[in-house]
Write a protein that binds this DNA or RNA. Structure first.
Length: 502
DNA sequence: ATACATACC
DNA sequence: TACTGGTATGTAT
């Protein structure tokens, strides 16, 4: 093993293929040189080692299971036939992927950037690059300083999310006219169910997609690529086929679908990343979706049921891709920051406090509270540690979150850190508005007492509005006209702030 | 419930 | 000099 695979160094170009000014080996060499000797490089080496061990363990498992293979093969055949019989071809999905989105928005403002290598991001990380930069091997998720080694003339533009949001909103508006329930994964990608639209319009999917892309272009001055298929997953894979500024229509025909997937590398499947792709290749020589089918028995024998079912269904083009379902509620909220290495607990606490404040602000905006507080620590060597506590009652203020987070930190303080994060999960919306009046009437409760006048307040302990009204009156006795805070919790928080840490 | 790993943009 | 941040989910314990 000569060095870390550049796929693990942020250099991989699984993105759309343009002719490259430099060939792949040359690019890989430059990335290697730029990374060698860094802590990050060492970390990736350890990571690759771990993956190699995992593959070795699976290889042993494979030899041990070889006697049961033929029986398992019968079952696999049955499983595949059964799955095939349930294929759904009736709905039509369209996946939209904006071309080099952030970079394209920047080009709108500064057209001269269209013809020079340019990327959006910072010295430590790039979000995207334009197509000129890609010919140098400069891609998203690559550190800016490495990108400069590949392309010394690269122009790096700091991101302007406000502009991207505005551009994204224009695009979404167009998309919603094709599917009002359109779900967008991010600013630059969206999945539409266009079955109803097609039924109404009597135009072909090709025509509708051309028209849609034309409308997106006119509304935003941005180009996009589109894929159409009978599942969201297929539509998404298809959107990559004729990128940029192109489209691909996959007919709802099982034979055409399988023929299309045959050539697709497994890495194209949403949910298969570089680790899974490497394990599949090293263990079973699986590279394409067709390989998944031909190795289906081993996949079922060696991987978990969830994992193998996902892989096989995906390879058949029947995967229920992410976003297929609900689109549901948020499950957690978190904040994390990377910084120059720190060693002292007190410095860590200062950062942690800021993170908690930020998290509390974000929580307040959507009125969430949560029962599980977690912290995430990344050492200077890039090892990640997480620690969590689950509480009796949901919390939402920075003081409460910090109280638990800092306990977790001091109990587990690593020698050094390059990143800290706080997360709140087990979320509930903390407003008492879902309680009906009956709850208040029947529950025997203790009256809360006022921290100012120390008298008991004639209100339920959850009734922060009335409690705050009372406290406000005590705090400002000369005024009868107490302006009602829209966010009652704030008043109480402000009152107790003095006793909080820092 | 907790820790860790993988994935996506 | 320098390798993100936010969210979800799968796996193992």
């Amino acid at each position: 093993m000569s060095g870390v695979n550049t796929t693990f160094l942020g250099g991989h170009a699984t993105k759309s293929g343009l002719p490259e000014a430099r060939d792949r080996t040359q690019i890989d060499k430059i990335i290697q040189e730029a990374s060698k000797g860094s802590k990050f490089y060492a970390f990736q080496q350890r990571r690759e080692q771990r993956i190699a061990e995992k593959v070795a363990a699976l290889q042993i498992k494979k030899t041990q299971l070889s006697t049961g293979y033929s029986k398992a093969e019968q079952e696999t055949r049955k499983w595949l036939a059964d799955a095939e019989s349930r294929r759904i071809l009736e709905r039509t999905y369209l996946h939209i992927d904006m071309d080099a989105f952030f970079a394209a928005v920047e080009v709108l403002r500064r057209p001269e950037l269209a013809t020079v290598p340019m990327a959006v991001g910072g010295e430590s990380m790039l979000s995207t690059s334009n197509y000129v930069a890609r010919t140098f091997g400069v891609v998203a998720a690559m550190p800016g300083y490495i990108a400069r080694k590949l392309c010394p003339h690269l122009i790096i533009i700091p991101p302007d999310y406000t502009a991207y949001r505005a551009a994204g909103a224009k695009v979404h508006e167009v998309l919603r006219s094709y599917d009002p329930n359109m779900s967008s994964f991010s600013l630059d990608e969206a999945s539409l169910d266009i079955t109803d639209y097609l039924a109404r319009s009597s135009a072909t999917p090709e025509e509708v997609t051309e028209e849609l892309r034309g409308r997106v272009l006119r509304a935003s001055n941005l180009t996009c690529s589109a894929g159409v298929g009978c599942s969201r997953q297929l539509a998404k894979i298809g959107s990559n086929v004729n990128k940029p500024n192109g489209q691909f229509i996959l007919p709802p025909d099982p034979e055409k679908i399988l023929e299309f997937l045959k050539k697709q590398p497994v890495k194209r499947i949403n949910g298969i990343g570089k680790v899974t792709a490497k394990i599949l290749e090293d263990l079973l020589k699986v590279v394409t979706c067709a390989d998944i089918i031909s190795q289906a028995t081993w996949i079922r024998l060696l991987f978990s049921e969830i994992q193998s079912e996902f892989l096989l269904l995906s390879a058949l083009g029947m995967g229920s891709a992410f976003g297929d379902g609900d689109g549901s509620e948020r499950k957690s909220m978190s904040v994390e920051r990377t910084f120059k290495k720190i060693d002292a607990l007190s410095d860590m606490q200062v950062v942690l406090k800021k993170l908690c404040k930020r998290l509390a602000e974000d929580l307040l905006e959507e009125e969430w509270a949560g029962k599980t507080v977690s912290i995430k620590m990344k050492t200077a060597a890039f090892d990640t540690l997480t620690r969590a506590v689950t509480l009796e009652n949901p919390v939402s203020t920075d003081e409460e979150i910090y109280k638990h987070a800092s306990k977790l930190l001091s109990k587990n303080k690593p020698p050094d850190l390059r990143l800290l994060g706080v997360r709140l999960s087990g979320l509930t919306t903390d407003a008492p508005r879902y309680r009906c009046l009956d709850d208040f009437a029947h529950e025997p409760v203790e009256r809360p007492s006022c921290p100012v006048c120390t008298q008991s307040i004639d209100a339920h302990p959850d009734d922060t509005l009335r409690i705050n009204e009372h406290i406000d009156k005590c705090l400002v006795p000369q005024s009868n006209l107490v302006p009602q805070s829209k966010k009652p919790r704030r008043t109480l928080d402000a009152f107790f702030n003095k006793s909080g840490p820092l």
